[in-house]
């Protein structure tokens, strides 16, 4: 991972975002600067309400910044684009489409039809291990399976940047660990630039090459911590010295921010 020459994939420049509210304005982001390198896996932690989702939505192009700029491949972001895929916490599967229909949604929008679309969809359905559920509707799937479909759907549209907003937040601990491993493997196989929000410090460390800690208020980046755990990573990495050190450090920093919020 390290040592390779890499380009800046996403450049975030002095980003501000305020929302109008009943008593004045709410500042969600207050001067965020961040460079995300190509094929880098970045995880983001920070107290609730510090602007993580806002940042992700702006990168995705689902929201506009109040000021500041975001570039993807040196192009200023203006609205959504298929090079930036999103996985939502609440899965957001189309309930009227089968697993295959969901995974094909983006493929079809790119004008790929018929046999080719089928094969492409199957590739990603196999990737998340759901080939036995191709014709099932979302209501027939467990939460973990739904999120797998959502990941396959995002991958199938072939984005170069994958934005994930607490994708495993609604899952039980066991399913969560399993999906973390799967995501790691997928990323190791088919590298993409990943921006992954979580509340779970362990999750942030096991997945991330860098962990971005956001500060309570106003929404800024407090620190970016490098995670030197070697690849391939798995659950055993969680007992490595590097992991525990990172965990200790990040926890104490995040905890300070939590205290800040409660003040």
């Amino acid at each position: 991972m390290a040592g390779k020459e890499r380009n800046v994939k996403v450049k975030i420049e002095n980003l501000h975002k305020t929302y109008p509210s009943r008593n004045g304005e709410v500042t969600a982001l207050n001067g965020v600067n961040l460079d995300i390198m190509e094929n880098e896996f970045i995880t983001v932690v920070g107290p609730s309400g510090c602007g993580k989702s806002t940042l992700l939505n702006i990168i995705a192009g689902l929201e506009k910044p109040t000021s500041g700029k975001v570039y993807c491949d040196d192009q200023e972001i203006n609205g959504t684009g298929t090079e930036r895929g999103v996985v939502f916490q609440q899965y957001a599967l189309f309930p009227w489409l089968t697993v295959k229909g969901n995974v094909q949604f983006g493929i079809h929008l790119q004008g790929i039809k018929g046999e080719e679309a089928d094969q492409l969809a199957m590739k990603y359905i196999r990737m998340v291990d759901l080939e036995d559920f191709v014709d099932h509707y979302p209501k027939e799937l467990s939460g973990g399976m739904k999120q797998r479909v959502a990941i396959a759907r995002a991958y199938a549209a072939n984005p170069s940047v994958l934005l994930m907003d607490e994708p495993f937040g609604a899952l039980d601990a066991q399913t969560r660990t399993q999906l973390q491993e799967e995501l790691l493997h997928t990323w190791e196989k088919e590298q993409k630039t990943c921006f992954f929000i979580t509340h779970d410090v362990d999750e942030a460390i096991i997945l991330g090459q860098k962990v971005v800690i956001m500060s309570a208020r106003p929404g800024r980046i407090k620190e970016v911590v490098d995670i030197p755990i070697p690849y391939p990573r798995n659950q055993e990495s969680k007992i490595s010295k590097e992991f525990l050190e990172a965990k200790n450090y990040i926890w104490s920093q995040v905890y300070k921010e939590y205290l800040e919020v409660r003040k």
Partner: peptide, 23 residues
């Protein structure tokens, strides 16, 4: 979020209407 999900997958207004709002 369904509409957002469709947008980030490349759906334009027309697609949103026919492939999300309608169903």
């Amino acid at each position: 979020t369904l509409i957002k999900a469709a947008r980030v997958l490349g759906a334009k207004d027309r697609d949103i209407f026919l492939k999300v709002i309608a169903p």
